[in-house]
């Protein structure tokens, strides 16, 4: 973040969020992204800063249950929102089915993109509707590997674990497990 210019006054705002079920109120600079709020102010470093431009998906969280790039979200604009990060996916010591499947199917190598992959997949599984590769726009297509690849295209993996990410997501999808 570049330094303020001469004469520019820093503006702050109070932001109240429900993060992983817990209400949090913070006074932040209006420039603070949701990602920086989570990582720097709340210490929730599971969400990763990859590109900080919305191109890699490592920062993906659920806002109101829908996946979003936390790096492109200004915290102040999401006042009142319910946010779920990777830290909120598991139920205590019981892993989320996607987390379990990522382990069983060896769906990561370095792990940096994994929190974003998990949150993105969790959001994707509840979205429904057609995608760019769906032949019939009027129905809800089955989540074939091709559909999963298209729907997960906002999450990059530089280790190239895509093949097993698709297998893991497919396993959870076909198990009909609610994410």
């Amino acid at each position: 973040m570049t330094a303020p210019e001469a004469g520019d006054q820093v503006h702050t705002a109070t932001v109240t969020l429900t993060v992983n079920g817990e209400s949090r109120a913070l006074e932040v600079d209006t420039r603070t992204s949701l990602l920086d709020l989570l990582r720097e102010h709340l210490g929730l470093t599971g969400s990763k800063k990859g590109c900080d431009h919305g191109q890699c998906g490592a920062c993906t969280v659920l806002i109101g249950g829908r996946r979003a790039n936390a790096c492109l979200a200004l915290a102040v604009a999401h006042d009142g929102a319910e946010v779920t990060t990777v830290e909120g996916l598991a139920d205590g010591d019981a892993l989320h089915p996607l987390q379990d499947a990522f382990i069983r199917y060896d769906a990561f190598q370095c792990g940096y993109c994994t929190p974003g992959q998990l949150c993105s997949a969790a959001g994707m599984l509840t979205e429904g509707g057609p995608s760019a590769v769906t032949a019939d726009l009027t129905g809800d297509p089955a989540l074939t590997p091709g559909e999963i690849r298209e729907r997960m295209s906002g999450n990059l993996c530089r280790c190239g674990a895509y093949v097993n990410i698709v297998r893991a997501v497919t396993a959870v999808s076909t198990a009909g497990t609610e994410p």
Partner: peptide
């Protein structure tokens, strides 16, 4: 774009 960006 991507699913995330279309949601926003």
């Amino acid at each position: 774009a991507s699913g995330q960006i279309r949601n926003m």
